[in-house]
Simulated scan of single mutants.
Amino acid sequence: MTDSASIPQILPQPTWLMDTDYTVIDKNAQAEKFEKDYVISIEYAVQVAKGTCCAFRADKQTCKNCPLENKWAASDGFPITFMGRDGVSYEFFGKLVKKEQNWMLEIRYIDKPFESEGKSMLTYLNEARESEQKRIARELHDGIAQSIYSLMLETRGLKWTPVEEHQQKLQAIDRHFADVLLEIKSLATELRPSILDDVGLIPAINQFVEQTMEMTGFIIHVIVDGDSIDLSSRGNVVIYRSIQEAISNSLKYSGENEASITLDFGQKELRVTIADEGKGFIYDPYHLGFGLLNLRERTHSVGGKMEVETGIEKGTRIILIVPYKEGLT
């Protein structure tokens, strides 16, 4: 091994040396000890360092509202978590730098484990929900409220408008009212899809699929096994929103142009499988990104559970299992 492909063993932090393909070619004694004490994935660490995922496996848009944002002062590194052999998740600070033709990954210890996995995830979810509430409030203030204020000014302005121009002004105000109404309906649909109440779960899913294929060209197959059973209003929303989110993730990240949605109505439970044959990813149930975390929490809210089957270049299968005793009307 040449000097350019080795690292000094005296480096105080766990350090790995990788080639241009991020394959480990050398590591120091501290790194070897680290691998004995913690469950580490070099590929995951590289993904976090490159910004393709983060400590919570969120996408870059989610990172804008990350609860870790004010926790890390250094701008040339990244926060990351690894699970210890004791089953507890610990926080670290990582750094990935170029060394001639190779890459060097350094992990720095932070002597503070998560107080508990549940509490950490709960804090993350609460902040995510708060961020969503702020987004809705901002849309109400910057969008609808401003439109109504504009309409108010237009209406008041009629008193100074010549009578012969009233008809034209009233038509413009009418169009403006229609736009505001459409904006309100759009926001209301985000909060609660009325189509579920109008036509039911399966037709609503079919309509969503048709609209998605028409707008994106993405092919989605819908398969229904067994006799459809009516869920509660809450159960319908959970399934519908989860399918929307899973298909959105498949569109963005799978690299393929096709996916499937299977609804299997069994005797005791509904199993919903959203699958694609795309790139897949490294699945770590202890470090879920916002999307998967959201899916899991939604399913848990109706007494169900989520399973994920994936791997690099192995496609992705997200399975949502909802028992009827929690979802039946």
Rank of each mutant, 00 (worst) to 15 (best):
314 K>C: 07
146 Q>K: 12
263 L>G: 02
291 G>M: 06
163 V>R: 10
23 T>D: 12
131 S>Q: 09
250 S>V: 04
223 I>E: 12
220 I>L: 00
160 W>P: 00
78 F>E: 06
111 D>C: 03
240 Y>K: 05
304 G>L: 01
132 E>R: 14
242 S>H: 05
210 E>L: 06
139 E>S: 12
58 A>C: 15
326 E>R: 11
234 R>I: 02
53 C>N: 11
261 I>R: 02
115 E>C: 05
314 K>M: 06
116 S>Y: 03
312 I>R: 05
129 R>W: 08
246 A>E: 01
174 D>M: 14
211 Q>A: 09
179 D>R: 14
182 L>R: 14
69 E>T: 13
69 E>S: 15
223 I>P: 07
177 F>W: 08
62 T>V: 14
183 E>T: 08
116 S>K: 01
104 M>G: 08
262 T>F: 09
15 T>G: 00
308 V>D: 05
240 Y>N: 02
13 Q>C: 09
93 F>C: 07
223 I>V: 13
86 D>A: 00
178 A>I: 07
280 G>Y: 04
268 K>D: 15
198 D>E: 15
168 Q>I: 06
155 T>G: 05
174 D>N: 13
69 E>K: 15
290 F>V: 13
322 V>M: 10
18 M>Q: 06
137 A>G: 15
61 Q>D: 14
277 E>H: 12
307 E>T: 06
189 T>V: 11
147 S>E: 12
59 D>N: 15
317 R>Q: 09
